[in-house]
Computed example of a mutant assay.
Amino acid sequence: MTETALPQPSPEQAVLFARVRRMMLMAGLTTAVAIAAVLIAIGYRLFRAEGSAASSDVTAVLPKGARIVSTGVAQDQLVVTLDIGGMTEIYTFDARTKKPTGSLKFVNEP
């Protein structure tokens, strides 16, 4: 078999080939940086997901004679309104950890 002889490129063609190689290198590096950024963002979201932990069961003990009037959620807080012998109390809990964060008591003036 005979091999095809490739002629040497002219100086203008050599400059054009070098420019095309440089542009392809820049495009390849840009693509690699973009793919790395996407993978880093996905990894960050997977490892920083705070709310995806397994839920835990918590039992809260109410004062004697207490009755739950209402419950609600405000931002990251769970709000429970209790009626305790004619007195109204509001308890707040952290929605993620389910730990008490505060209470507010209402009483009637004598």
Rank of each mutant, 00 (worst) to 15 (best):
T2V: 09
T2Y: 00
T4W: 04
A5R: 10
A5V: 15
A5Y: 09
L6M: 07
P7A: 08
S10E: 08
S10L: 11
E12W: 01
E12V: 13
Q13M: 12
Q13Y: 00
Q13C: 02
A14V: 11
V15Q: 12
L16K: 11
L16M: 09
F17D: 12
F17R: 11
A18F: 03
A18E: 15
V20H: 02
V20K: 02
R21L: 06
R22K: 05
M23G: 00
M23C: 00
M24F: 09
M24H: 10
L25F: 03
G28M: 09
L29P: 02
T30P: 04
T31K: 02
A34R: 03
I35M: 07
I35T: 07
I35G: 02
A36C: 08
V38A: 13
V38M: 13
L39S: 04
L39M: 05
I40G: 05
A41D: 08
G43S: 03
G43N: 08
G43Q: 01
R45W: 01
L46C: 08
F47V: 13
F47A: 04
A49T: 01
A49L: 01
A49M: 01
A49I: 00
E50C: 01
G51Y: 12
G51S: 11
G51N: 14
G51Q: 10
G51H: 12
G51P: 02
S52T: 00
A53G: 15
S55C: 04
S56M: 14
S56W: 04
S56L: 12
D57K: 07
D57Q: 11
D57A: 11
V58R: 15
V58I: 14
V58T: 15
V58S: 11
V58M: 12
T59N: 15
A60M: 14
L62C: 12
L62W: 14
K64C: 04
G65C: 04
G65Q: 08
A66F: 04
A66D: 06
R67H: 13
I68Y: 09
I68D: 15
I68H: 08
I68C: 12
V69R: 13
V69G: 03
V69A: 15
S70K: 10
S70W: 07
S70F: 04
T71Q: 09
T71F: 00
T71V: 14
G72I: 08
G72Y: 10
G72S: 15
G72W: 07
V73A: 15
V73W: 14
A74Y: 14
A74K: 13
A74G: 09
D76P: 07
V79Q: 05
V80N: 00
T81V: 15
D83L: 06
D83K: 02
G85P: 06
G85L: 06
G86L: 02
G86C: 03
M87Y: 01
T88K: 02
T88F: 04
I90E: 11
Y91E: 12
T92I: 05
F93G: 01
D94K: 03
D94E: 13
A95L: 10
T97A: 11
K98F: 05
K99W: 09
P100Q: 07
P100G: 04
T101W: 03
T101Q: 10
T101Y: 01
T101C: 01
G102Q: 07
S103H: 06
L104D: 11
L104P: 00
F106P: 04
V107Y: 10
V107R: 09
N108I: 04
N108H: 10
N108V: 05
